[in-house]
Amino acid sequence: MSSLRCGAALNRGLTEAMAADERVYLLGEDVLDPYGGAFKISTGISDRWPDRVISTPISEASLVGIAAGMAIQGYRPVLEIMFGDFITLGFDQIVNGISKFREMYNDQVRLPLVVRTPMGGRRGYGPTHSQSLEKFLIGVPNITVVATSEIHDLGAMMRAAVEDDEPVFLVENKVMYGRPNRRPESGRLDGFSVRESDGPYPALTLSASGFSAGTATIATYGGTVPLAIDAATELIMEHEVFCEIVVLGSLLPLDLDPVLESVERTGALIVAEEGTMTAGIGAEIAARVQEAAWDDLRAPVRRVAAADGIIPSAPGLEDAMLPSVPELVDAALRCEAARV
């Protein structure tokens, strides 16, 4: 299991979900074998279940609604949106349909559907194929937004999303696909102690000091997780500063308890995400934490995020606008400075 790459782990979970329930259908562009989707998450599925895989035209605006219609009628569609950037085309169906139906129709319908899509940059794909747009999804009531990461049990997360009776938007990450799906062993990962919460989309809390007092909590998710781990490691090795990292699984509803528990120990919070900063997920976390744990905080909540602008294509330009390890280290050192 430890050697499986994240993309393969997701594929395994999806394959198991298809095998477990014949109401599960896969829809998307270029999902048929031998291609198996642009990032290969759907590989092997159409060969095995040709009648339950539907290769679609490039019609995201309709496909999200088609998934909703199937779900209301008792099926469990999994819709692959090839790049997260394209989910904007489906937003009418998300905001005015999927978000509305169950509550607006007075609980007469359910929408057990999954929309899964890769977000994130660092591959040089440029402004319209590199974004992290999940912050727009967390503004939509009545949906679940799940962030996968390379230290989550990705197969279990995928199966949980497909088995969920509510609509789930599964946010994946392009760089993550090629990295090993690393899991804590005996409560340890990369020299950190790890606690994992219960539930289908757990949060993992990593501590460099055995969950004793630290300098700051870094709350993050998805593709920013390896940066946070690198930053926390550098902070220990070069600055003797000990941080906790909370890796969120559920962005909506926002899984705040692990963050609050960590902040109670560390007294400071850094929120880190790859999306642009303004009105980001970090802003929502910061607002809620200061409201709930003002007495625990000894420094302002710090945000690390992409600059408000486009994600340029050239690697040197892209690196400059996306969040980085040095920015995380700097934020933690500022929290450390506030201790004295």
Binding site: I54, G65, I66, G69, M70, Q73, Q93
Partner: peptide
């Protein structure tokens, strides 16, 4: 129309 199309696919 997309919603109806998805329902028709279910049917």
């Amino acid at each position: 129309v997309p919603l109806a199309s998805g329902m028709a696919l279910a049917e």
